[in-house]
Design a protein around this nucleic acid. Structure first.
Lengths: 331, 331
DNA sequence: TAAGATGGTGTTAGCGCTAACACCGATCAA
DNA sequence: TTGATCGGTGTTAGCGCTAACACCATCTTA
């Protein structure tokens, strides 16, 4: 690994000034065809690769955005990431994908290091930070868009979680279920709060307040769902339906039900949320609420681009509608 | 968004030189306790965040490594990523996760942009690039470790794919299957080549050459597996087993089998590879070959650290053993 | 007491790049 | 003719940070 080739080396080789090389490389400003060729030749010969660090320092742009998610292994976020990337790459931006592992502390350090990298923008999915910490962490960032979370003054792309939960619970009620438990997600999850709200409101309206204890929180993944369902079903065997925070949790619940000898859907109905690809593949396939994940990412990136563009219009709030998907786990 | 706070602002506020601020912020060199406090106060007051760009330019280190995978949504790579991240964060490195979407061209531009970002190291998983392109793309990179792919002169962490495939095929044979088809992955996949080799070698030894056409390539995901299986099974209904490139393909095949009215495992055995979490959750659960994904990432990062450390010992090749996992889809 | 070591601080000179302007000859309109 | 305009090129001055050294008090040690 010899010393890196710099723009000065190229300039010397091609017999022009550094500025001219810069013009050729970035296609900015006029350069005669013959010098352009000479420069490109030198670039190829030497294997010159401009330093993004130096360029970023000089231009105050890095052509990079940060995308922070709680769990890359969750297909939900993988979908969002695809949406973001598609637009980003088309616009010449790189995407720096960061994984917090559902850990707020890690989320904080990640946000900090993205700030030090001087990313041009930030998309933050389902932040698990308390509001005060979140606001503090974002105050020095430039363009920022939140996904699945809102915060006064920031652009956001959201799902109408409450409506989704309402649809699911109403569906369960119409299927004759009366003792509906809920496996909720993290307390700091904005989506979870809204889904709980929806759940409660339907029960209230039907004149059947939620029984104390029928709601249990668990980690928003398969293992968490399994353990949560076991705990919940052993404590309250009378439950005839489980409204799960998301599909992964529902998959865990499905597993737990099998282990406990409860048959789904006859004996116990189970619903998820998100409609990840896996949902349709389970036995029985999951009744869930489909969320347009790709659009979430896509819209978030568009909003971010507006903010970066500076037209100050990127702070709106976009709400996407989820859609009830009825399958075998709760027909 | 006011002008950014720089080290000079902090120095002025604290009444010291920039160098002293730098010493405090990086904890390098001696500083008296009283000035340290004064500087930290100023840092907090102004909300100073050092510029990684400027620092990287000055130190020639970015404390960042690049991790390139073909598909973040594949739990296999999510597992590898977790392994990499754990070690990386412990050692103070950030991980820049890049997704090629199985597209070689995108892979090239990604590698290029990582080079421009001057990452300190690169972990490249299951590269889909032809050998010549790959070598060319890596020649200017510093420390590099490959996962699931080998290339003369580069450190690599591999799975003994051939042995894994052999174990699977022998298991199928011992279960009485005689007409074993294969749903293979991309031609450029190193793992795929080895698994094919294993498959052929067992058949050869058993004196039963693979029938022309019993091998079909498909995209290495659920949709690809489903379509591939439909094509293969319609062309060769006599097949009594399907050796799938990976678990996602096997899941697709499972779907296809159901659609075509073939019962698994009675009528048709199906095997996967990787043992992603989903594999155990299918109905029937997948017989597969378990790969220690977390270790793959973990070892790759260790190797990379050795290379970065410069002890020149990071170019070994580490081969991890897969393990046959027998479940319902091929008992 | 002179010669060194040590802790604490500042100065200088880049790292590799580009914004902004300056310059020069050629072309063009009035 | 004069001045304006424009394509093509170079010069200067940073962007924000740190390596390397210089400096000056103290404090050792023989």
């Amino acid at each position: 690994m010899n010393k890196r080739v710099t723009i000065a080396d190229v300039a010397r080789t091609a017999g022009v000034s550094m500025m001219t090389v810069s013009r050729v490389v970035n296609d900015s400003g006029p350069v005669s065809e013959s010098t352009r060729q000479r420069v490109l030749l030198a670039v190829g010969e030497l294997g010159y690769r401009p330093s993004g660090l130096a360029r970023g320092l000089a231009t105050r742009r890095t052509a990079t955005i940060g995308l922070v998610v709680p769990d890359v292994a969750n297909p939900f976020f993988a979908g969002v990431a695809k949406g973001v990337e598609q637009i980003a790459y088309a616009e010449g931006y790189n995407v720096f994908l960061g994984n917090t592992g559902e850990d707020p502390e890690h989320e904080l350090t990640l946000l900090q290091s993205l700030e030090e990298k001087r990313v041009d923008g930030l998309i933050l999915c389902s932040s698990r930070l308390p509001e005060a910490d979140l606001r503090q962490a974002l105050q020095w960032h430039g363009a920022t868009v939140l996904v699945n979370r809102q915060l006064e003054g920031f652009g956001a792309v959201l799902v109408d979680d409450q409506r989704g939960a309402i649809a699911l619970v109403e569906h369960l009620l119409s299927g004759g279920r009366r003792r509906i438990g809920m496996l909720a997600g993290p307390e700091t999850s904005h989506s979870c709060r809204l889904r709980l709200l929806g759940y409660d409101s339907v029960l209230q309206e039907a004149g059947m307040q939620r029984r104390q204890g029928w709601m249990l929180r668990c980690a928003p993944d398969v293992a968490g769902g399994r353990q949560g369902a076991i705990n919940l079903l052993q404590a309250y065997p009378e439950l005839d339906a489980l409204l799960c925070f998301n599909d992964l949790v529902a998959v865990g619940a499905l597993q737990a039900a099998a282990e406990l000898g409860r048959s789904v859907p006859d004996d116990l109905a189970i619903t998820g949320f998100d409609d990840i690809p896996l949902a349709a593949l389970m036995t029985p396939p999951l009744t869930t609420c489909s969320v347009p994940v790709f659009d979430l990412g896509d819209q978030a990136m568009r909003l971010l681009l507006e903010q970066i563009g500076g037209c100050d219009e990127g702070c709106e709030r976009i709400v996407l509608a989820p859609e009830l998907v009825i399958r075998g786990s709760a027909p």
